[in-house]
Design a protein around this nucleic acid. Structure first.
Lengths: 243, 243
DNA sequence: CTTGACTTAGGACACATGTTCGTGTTATTA
DNA sequence: TAATAACACGAACATGTGTCCTAAGTCAAG
């Protein structure tokens, strides 16, 4: 059993999954004792102990002395067993369809100087990673939600794409693009990932920065460019210190 | 006082509004006594009585003996009209939607060269259908959702705030700010609205652009600056032509 | 007027639920 | 090995909270 102070222990993760699913199903949060049962912990104080840690790490929030007041800040769904995965996925898909809510897996960070971490062919990489919840109404009508994934931008290297440190970008994997689409591309010669508007011209490819004050890049050799996916959305959150 | 068995009485309506707003704001349902206070009813039994009627009419659902387990099936806001027409779906779907999704009114466009259209003191926010739906999990924990509104940015004039033409910005009205917060301010001398990080220094105010390559603006006279609100989120959508 | 359905109060009651304290156990580090 | 921090249990406690019983006021119809 791990004893490090950083990160979440297995118990923390199971609690987060239980909370996420419980609230998703019933619409209100479970009691401390119910949480205890779900992770085979007998004493309410221990659950309280874990909940305080989760609150500390800002995975949940709750109001003192108020029953069932837990709110999940970073939803976490269980990967489940291989068998259950499909069921759960369809269940989630159905839910999402009616719900208007989709959960997009957060696949890590993206730095300009390295390639985009793509989904390993392995499919149940939903792992107990936290995801980003998006209202379906914000996405294009027929977007294939199940393919989407999210990345957190690290560093200021994409300011010419009007993307800032800490921004979330939501991407649909694809190795081709239509003119005018915002794509994530890997440039061989520059050894970096950027976000640009894609335009195929007669004999070259033009990559246009989102920032209108900046000049386009021209690529003559189509081999030197690898399209990783299409950018569907960029989300920037500002957390206020005090409320 | 009406005595018809059909329809909702004024009290019913007030309870529904209270429930809708409370759950929208806190993410969990109020207790019977809290509901009682909100409509000036002292006895819990009377509230229970009303809640049973509302449950009978399928305006809410709740679990026996479980605290704060009320779920709103037909959301109702102060304006009086119910929003969302797709409420006829299964109770569960609606619950999830109501709990996890918040609808933020889209109040119009914002141009750098004109002040931010603020909420008319009048309370009928929810009149227009157009709103932006956001998963609650994307917002700060205790954000007072009911105050938020969204604006669509028009023009390229805010690129130094890393905000593009067509972006949605979500704002919480406020006339003051804490150091480090991203605020929407109106600058008297420049006659324009901008989004900047706010820093109050000894004798002046520093407005720092989000774009790290750009220089800050210094304001010596605090009167020349009007804080309109705090920026909570920026959303940029890329619609792809073909799917 | 009488009846009965509906509405309102007040409060007792049981138990659900968050909090806290004391104690013991396990792992990490000095 | 000893010390310390993190983890774990159980029980006592206070109070939050839903339920239910009694009683009474209000209004429409017979």
């Amino acid at each position: 059993m791990a004893r490090k102070r950083e990160g979440l222990s297995d118990r923390h993760r199971r609690i987060m999954e239980y909370l996420t699913e419980f609230i998703d199903e019933f619409g209100y949060s479970p009691s401390i004792r119910e949480i205890g049962d779900s992770i085979d912990v007998k004493s309410t104080s221990l659950v309280d102990y874990y909940l305080n840690q989760l609150e500390e790490k800002e995975y949940i929030s709750r109001e003192g002395r108020i029953s069932r007041s837990i709110r999940v800040l970073k939803p976490m769904r269980s990967a489940g067993k291989a068998i259950n995965t499909k069921v759960r996925d369809t269940a989630r898909a159905v839910n999402a369809a009616v719900d208007n809510l989709v959960n997009i897996p957060l696949r890590g960070r993206i730095v300009a100087s390295s390639p985009i971490p793509m989904p390993t062919s392995d499919f149940n990489y939903y792992d107990s990673e936290s995801g980003v919840e998006i209202a379906r109404s914000l996405l294009p009508a027929r977007e294939r939600v199940s393919e989407l994934f999210a990345l957190e931008v690290q560093g200021d290297s994409m300011i010419d794409a009007m993307v800032n440190d800490g921004d979330l970008i939501i991407i649909r994997p694809s190795n081709q693009a239509v003119n005018g689409e915002m794509v994530a591309v890997w440039l061989d010669d520059k050894d970096e990932t950027t976000l640009k508007y894609f335009y195929k011209e007669k004999s070259r490819i033009r990559l246009q920065p989102a920032n209108p004050t900046m000049d386009p890049i021209y690529i003559d050799n189509p081999e030197a460019l690898r399209i990783m996916g299409k950018v569907v959305m960029v989300i920037r959150q500002y957390k206020s210190e005090i409320l």
